[in-house]
Design a protein around this nucleic acid. Sequence first.
DNA 1: CACTTCTTTCCTGCTT
DNA 2: TAAGCAGGAAAGAAGT
Length: 391
Amino acid sequence: MAATCEISNVFSNYFSTMYSSEDPTLASVPPAAALGADDLALALSSPQMPLEGTEKASWSGEQPQLWSKAQVLDWISYQVEKHKYDASTIDLSRCDMDGAALCRCAPEELRLVFGPLGDQLYSQLWDLTSSFPDELSWIMELLEKDSMTLQEPLGDQGPFGESHFLEKSQHRLNLPPPPEQGSPFAQEMLEDYRQASPFYPGSFGAGAPSPGSSEVSTTGTGTSQSSHASDSGGSDVDLDAPDTKLFSGDGLPDCKKGDLKHGKRKRGRPRKLSKESRECVESKKNKHAPRGTHLWEFIRDILIHPELNEGLMKWENRQEGVFKFLRSEAVAQLWGQKKKNSSMTYEKLSRAMRYYYKREILERVDGRRLVYKFGKNSSGWKEGEVAGRRN
DNA sequence: CACTTCTTTCCTGCTT
DNA sequence: TAAGCAGGAAAGAAGT
C-alpha cells in the first residue's frame, strides 16, 4: 500500500509538474535563427540582454536539454554579458553544441571551454534544468537510482519532501549540484504539485480518491472532488483552475452523460471548450505543448520499474512482454492525470489499448482478463533494452 | 487548411 | 449480475 501510494505520488508529481504553467509570453519570442559556427563570435561579441524589460530570450522558458545550438549560443551570450566576461578568451569552436550536449558537460569541461565563467554557466544551467519537469522516464530513472531514499517512510513531508525532490532534480545533469541551494523554480513546482495532486496529503479532504482503492471518479459519477471535472479534458488537477473557472458558466458547450435531453447522447468525444474559451486558455499556455508519451509508453514505463509500480501492474512473462493490470482503475486515473482528464477510466484506457492490436504495438492475450502483451512494434520493455536505456 | 495520428468517448453485444 | 473484452463510430487535440 505504501509503495502504491508512492508510485501514485511519483506520477502525480510528474504529471502535475509536467503541465505546470509556463510563462505564455515566452511563446512570443521568435525562435533563434540557426547560426553557423562563424556566427558564434558575432553572437558573443554582441550579446543580447534578453531579460531586460519585457523581452525574453529565445532560450528562456524552454528546457535546456531542448535548446537548439542557437539558443545555447544565446544563453552563453547572455551569461557572458551578465558576468562581464571577456568573450575573446572563449574557445568558440567548442560552443557549437545544442542543449543536450551542453547539459552533458561536466563542470570541468565547461571550465575548460569558458574558463572561470564555466562554473557560473554550470550553476545557472543547473538552476534552469531544475526548474523543468522532464519525461516520465527521467523521473522513473531517478527514482530507481534513488530507490533507497524512496523507500524511506513518507513522513510528514509526503513522498517528495521538498529537499528530496530537489535532490532528484540535481541529478538531471548527471552531475553533483552546485554549491548553492535548490532552484526556486523547483519550489514552485512543488507548490503546484501540492495544490494539484489528489494524491498529495492534504490536497483533498476525506473524499480524496486513494490510488489503492477502486473508488476513483469516473465520468458517470459527475461528483468529482473539489474541482469541477467539467469535461473530457477538464482539469482534474487544479493547475488550470483559474482558466477553466472562467468558463464554468456557459463555456462548456457540449454535453456529458447527464446531459441527455433526448435519450441518447451523441457519439464521439464531447467538445472540450468553446473556441473562445480555448483561445483564452491557450493564450495562457505554451502554444505547442509537447505531446508527451503515448499510452503504451506510459504503461511500459510503469512496468519497467517493478519496484515502483508495485500494486499497479505486473509482468506475467517478462521475456514475452506479457503483463497484467492489477489495479486497472488506478492506472487509468494516473493516465488521466497525465492527460489532464479526470474522467479517464479503465474502460476507455482499454479501448485505446485495443487499438494497439491493429498496429501490433500490443498483441491479444485471449481468455485472460486485464492481460496484454507487447507486440513487435513496441520497444523499450525488454530487459536488454531497459538496461540500455538506463545507461 | 487539409490531412494524419493518437487518443477519447460512447455504444452494443459478447464472454467470463 | 458485474466486470471485462471486442470493436464500430464519431469526434477532439495536436502534429505535419
